[in-house]
Amino acid sequence: TYTFKVDNKDQAKKAAKWAKKLGLSFQIEKHGDTFKITVQ
């Protein structure tokens, strides 16, 4: 499981695209202005 934080929606979208490309499941949680992405 890999967790990282991004500062904006664009970065969150890029991370989601990357995870989908690799066939991984992911969750994006919004914490105020940051997004926490968990990829597994």
Rank of each mutant, 00 (worst) to 15 (best):
Q11A: 13
Q27W: 13
Y2S: 03
E29F: 06
T38V: 08
G23Q: 04
K14P: 01
V6I: 07
T3E: 10
G32A: 05
T38M: 06
G23I: 02
G32W: 04
K14H: 08
A15W: 15
L22T: 04
D33S: 08
A19Q: 01
N8Q: 05
D33Q: 07
K20D: 05
K17N: 09
V6K: 01
K14L: 11
F4C: 15
Q27G: 05
A15C: 15
T1N: 10
A15V: 15
K13V: 10
Q11H: 08
T38S: 06
K13C: 15
F35E: 00
I37Q: 00
Q11Y: 06
A12M: 10
D10Y: 15
K5M: 15
K21E: 08
H31F: 13
V6E: 02
V6H: 02
F35C: 08
A15F: 15
F35T: 02
K5L: 15
K30Y: 06
A15S: 03
F4N: 01
D10S: 13
G32Q: 05
T38K: 05
D10I: 13
T3M: 06
K9G: 07
T34R: 11
D10L: 13
L22C: 15
S25T: 11
V6P: 01
D10A: 14
D10R: 13
W18A: 04
K36L: 15
F4V: 04
L24V: 04
G23W: 02
D7H: 13
K13E: 11
F26Q: 01
V6Y: 06
F35D: 00
T34A: 14
A19H: 02
Q27N: 09
K9I: 15
A12W: 04
A19I: 12
I37W: 01
I28R: 02
T1K: 12
Q40D: 07
Y2P: 03
K21W: 09
L24Q: 02
T34Q: 14
A16P: 00
F35S: 01
A16C: 11
T38P: 00
Y2D: 02
K5N: 14
D10G: 12
A12F: 04
T34K: 14
K14I: 09
H31Y: 12
E29T: 11
A16H: 05
K14T: 07
G23E: 03
A19W: 03
W18V: 04
D33Y: 05
H31Q: 13
L22P: 00
S25D: 09
T3R: 04
T34N: 10
K20L: 10
L24P: 00
W18S: 02
H31E: 15
E29D: 07
Q27F: 13
A19R: 01
D10K: 13
V6T: 08
G32R: 04
N8D: 07
Q40K: 11
A19T: 01
L24M: 08
D7K: 14
H31N: 11
K13Y: 09
T38I: 10
D10P: 06
T34H: 14
K21Y: 08
G32N: 07
D33K: 09
D33T: 10
K13Q: 11
I28D: 00
D7C: 15
K21G: 08
K17G: 06
T1G: 12
K36F: 15
T38L: 05
Y2C: 15
S25E: 09
H31W: 11
T1E: 11
L24S: 01
E29H: 06
K30L: 07
I28K: 02
L24C: 04
Y2A: 04
I28P: 00
G32I: 03
L22A: 08
I28N: 01
K21V: 07
E29Y: 06
I28G: 01
L22V: 06
K9F: 14
K13N: 09
K21Q: 09
K9P: 09
K9V: 13
K9Y: 14
K14M: 10
K13T: 08
F26N: 01
V39Y: 05
I28Y: 03
T3Y: 10
G32H: 04
K36G: 03
K36Q: 13
F26G: 01
A12C: 15
K5D: 12
Q11W: 06
K30G: 05
A15M: 12
V39N: 00
Q40P: 03
Q40L: 10
K13D: 13
D10Q: 13
Q11G: 07
G32T: 02
F4W: 11
K13I: 12
G32V: 03
D10H: 14
T1C: 15
F35M: 04
K20P: 01
K9A: 14
K21R: 12
A12R: 03
K20G: 04
K5I: 15
I37K: 00
F26D: 00
S25F: 09
K36S: 12
E29K: 07
F35A: 01
K20S: 08
D7S: 13
Q40T: 13
K20A: 10
I37F: 08
N8T: 14
K13M: 12
K13G: 05
Q40C: 13
F26L: 10
G23C: 06
K9L: 14
W18L: 07
A19G: 02
E29N: 05
Q27E: 10
N8F: 04
G32D: 06
T34S: 13
K36E: 12
T1P: 07
A15E: 02
K21P: 00
L22W: 08
A15H: 04
T34C: 15
K21S: 11
K36R: 12
G32E: 07
K30R: 11
K5S: 15
E29L: 06
H31M: 14
K14A: 13
K17Q: 12
L24F: 09
Q27C: 14
D7I: 09
K20I: 09
T1L: 09
K5H: 15
